[in-house]
Structure formats: structure tokens, C-alpha cells
């Protein structure tokens, strides 16, 4: 009995640092946040917040900016998830083949991920604003010369997706590389003898065998796209403006940035908090749904 007591003391001692910091930094603020989202809190010292019930939530759902931002975030996330995974998987295939310098390529594709989002955003701003038109001018291609990706509200989102894909695909590629290297060579050979061509092998053997990687990569790309902030700050800072149902909106002000702006730029803390909670709920539901769906497709060896 004594030994058991001692064991459980050690157990809680080891758990304490993680548990305490989790409670203090995540759990407590989360419930405080729920409370604040139902008040008119402004974070100004000395002013006691008043209870307003669900007013902040009502305002949010009637806000056209919020609705617009929500839709744009979904579009951004959907296209990013697809483009990052397609690019990452393609690169992973290339660098797992018997080619020369494959380690060099692996490192090369991974490096953008080491550059911080802000720096990366400014680099791409330079590329979109100066490099592409300059190349267009040099080659005499008017389309490129006049392509101002960052000033057309319909195209800017794609500029963001391009920059984000460039940053993140290398990281996701590494996960795919690890998964691809784990696919037993014998299975591919057996399917080759069974008569499968390249695409049939890919679809019938490789893809099911790396289903576990899909769960991870879909999850990571999904939540990171959804939460995207730093690249946007540097690249467009939310602009250019557009019209949505007669209201002026910022075409690349995605949810994370929208919440930040509401809370800190306009100092409407409680409103921002309410939106953050909805943001959290939506992201949770979507990502749990995704993991549940992907998990079902995984193969046990």
C-alpha cells in the first residue's frame, strides 16, 4: 500500500508542471473568455464590465464583415489544404525516388518553413509587386507586367495561398516522405506483377498505405490555414478593399486577423472574444470531423 501511495505522489509530481501551466494558460482563460464574451468588457482598467447576455453573438452573426471574413477563410482553407497537400505529396514522391542529390532537394524544399511568416510575407510582397512585373517587362509579356496580384481583391487570396503553400509544403512533404519510405517495397512489387500501372499502384497501394500521414497532414494544414495570420499581415495586411453586399470589406482579412482587429485595433474586446469562441468551436468541429473521417481510412498492418 505504501508503495502505491509513493507511486501516485511521483505521478502527480511529474504531471504537475504540465498540468498547472495548461490550466493556468488554457483552461482558466478559456472559461474567463466565455464569461467576457457575454459582457461589454473593454480591458480598460477600473471599468467593471456589464453583463450583456448574447448581444455580442447576435451582433457577430448580423455583421457582414464577419460573415465575409468567415467565407473567405473557408475558401482560403479549402484551397490551401488542397494545394499544400498536392504540392507536398508530389515533392515527396520526387525526393523518395532514386535520384541524385535527393537529400539536397529535401533540405531545399524544407527551408522556406524555417523562415518566419512575417519575413516570408515581405519577400513575397516584393516578388508580387516588383519581380513578376519586371520579368513580364523583360520578356515582353504584358499579362505578367500588368499582373498586380496584391491589388485585385479577387486575386489576392491566391497570392496568399501561393506564399503559404511555398512556406508550408516542405514541412508537410517531410511527413509524406517518412510515410512513403515506410510503404513496403514488396507490396508495390506484388502489385506490379499483378498488373498495376503507375497510377493504379498509387491509388490502390500507396495512398491507402500512407493514410496515417493523410490524417496528420490534413489536420495540420487545416488548422494552420484556418489560423493563418502572420503571412497576411506582412503581405497584404487585410487589403485590398472590396464591396460585399454594399459594405466595404477587407478582401484578405481572414478570421484570425478579423478577430485581432476587432479586439485590439477597435478595442472591442468582448466582441472579439465572442468571435474567437465561435472560431474555436468551428475549428474544433471541422478538425475533429476530419480526424474521425481520416482515422477510419487508416490501415493496420
Amino acid at each position: 500500500m505504501k508503495k502505491q501511495k509513493k507511486d501516485s505522489l511521483v505521478f502527480w509530481l511529474f504531471l504537475a508542471p504540465a498540468l498547472i501551466s495548461f490550466v493556468v494558460v488554457v483552461i482558466v482563460p478559456f472559461f474567463m473568455g466565455i464569461y467576457y464574451s457575454m459582457t461589454d468588457w473593454t480591458a480598460v482598467a477600473g471599468i467593471t464590465p456589464n453583463w450583456v447576455g448574447l448581444d455580442n453573438y447576435k451582433d457577430m452573426f448580423s455583421s457582414l464583415e464577419f460573415r465575409y471574413s468567415f467565407i473567405r477563410t473557408f475558401i482560403f482553407t479549402l484551397i490551401s489544404v488542397i494545394s499544400i497537400n498536392v504540392v507536398a505529396l508530389t515533392f515527396a514522391f520526387l525526393v523518395t525516388r532514386e535520384i541524385r542529390f535527393k537529400n539536397f532537394y529535401r533540405a531545399g524544399f524544407f527551408i522556406p518553413n524555417l523562415i518566419g511568416g512575417l519575413v516570408l510575407g515581405y519577400i513575397w510582397q516584393f516578388i508580387f509587386k516588383s519581380v513578376i512585373p519586371a520579368i513580364g517587362g523583360l520578356l515582353g509579356i504584358n499579362f505578367l507586367k500588368e499582373l498586380l496580384l496584391l491589388s485585385d481583391p479577387n486575386l489576392t487570396l491566391f497570392g496568399l495561398i501561393l506564399a503559404f503553400t511555398w512556406q508550408y509544403a516542405g514541412y508537410i512533404m517531410m511527413i509524406y516522405v517518412a510515410a512513403l519510405l515506410n510503404v513496403p517495397q514488396e507490396l508495390l512489387e506484388a502489385s506490379e506483377i499483378d498488373g498495376a500501372n503507375f497510377w493504379q499502384k498509387l491509388w490502390n497501394i500507396t495512398v491507402p498505405m500512407i493514410a496515417q500521414a493523410f490524417t496528420i497532414t490534413s489536420f495540420l494544414t487545416l488548422i494552420n490555414s484556418f489560423k493563418q495570420y502572420d503571412i497576411i499581415v506582412a503581405l497584404t495586411n487585410g487589403g485590398p478593399t472590396d464591396l460585399y453586399q454594399g459594405t466595404v470589406v477587407n478582401s484578405t482579412e481572414l478570421l484570425a486577423m478579423h478577430i485581432y482587429n476587432i479586439a485590439f485595433k477597435y478595442n472591442r474586446m468582448a466582441e472579439g472574444q465572442a468571435r474567437a469562441i465561435i472560431f474555436f468551436l468551428v475549428l474544433s468541429v471541422v478538425s475533429i470531423g476530419q480526424v474521425y473521417y481520416n482515422k477510419k481510412k487508416e490501415v493496420e498492418m
Partner: peptide, 28 residues
Amino acid sequence: PKDRNIAMVFQNYALYPHMSVYDNMAFG
């Protein structure tokens, strides 16, 4: 390999783990 009209049995069997026995045999 697919045009040689051969079949091969591997040392570790190389069965497709995500397919049933029936589908393993039916694949080719």
C-alpha cells in the same frame, strides 16, 4: 512484369493489408 504472364510469391507474402483475402486475390 505485368506483361510476362508470371506470378510471384514473396518471402513475406506481400499481401495488401488494407484488402480482404478475396480482394487480395481479385486485385490482379
